[in-house]
Simulated assay, not measured.
Amino acid sequence: MSTPASVAPAMPVGPPSSVEALIRKDGRLTLTFADDAVLVVEPDDQYEAFTVTSMPPPGFRGFRFVAVPGRGLAHW
């Protein structure tokens, strides 16, 4: 079982800086970070694999992308 003390050394200090986010129509998300690390979220046949939501300033319209089960993408 992992304890916070055993996990902490593997965690970076501070939030990572995302350089690129790619959302595909098949429900795949790829995030590339400033240190060239890449995180890929694959679609799932039974569950929503991810949700990406914007936080715009007041008066601006935001967006939301959801990877729907079965390799699809919903957005509004």
Rank of each mutant, 00 (worst) to 15 (best):
G27K: 02
V66D: 03
P9K: 06
G27T: 03
E42C: 14
P12I: 12
V7K: 10
D26C: 08
S6Y: 02
T53C: 07
V41R: 03
A34M: 13
V41I: 15
A21Y: 03
H75T: 09
G72S: 10
V7R: 10
V40F: 07
P12R: 13
F33C: 02
P4S: 13
E48K: 13
W76A: 05
A74K: 07
D35A: 08
V41L: 07
W76C: 04
P12A: 09
D35Q: 09
A21I: 11
A49F: 01
L22G: 04
D26F: 02
S6G: 10
E42R: 15
T30N: 03
P12L: 11
F33Q: 01
E48Q: 14
R28I: 05
P58S: 15
R28F: 03
E42H: 15
D35I: 10
P9C: 06
G14A: 04
G14L: 04
Q46V: 06
P16M: 06
A37G: 06
L22T: 12
P12Q: 11
G14P: 04
D26P: 00
P16W: 09
A74F: 13
P16K: 11
D44S: 15
A67M: 08
Y47M: 13
T32G: 01
G27I: 02
M1V: 03
D36A: 09
A74H: 08
T53N: 06
W76R: 06
G59F: 11
P69F: 07
A49E: 00
P43I: 00
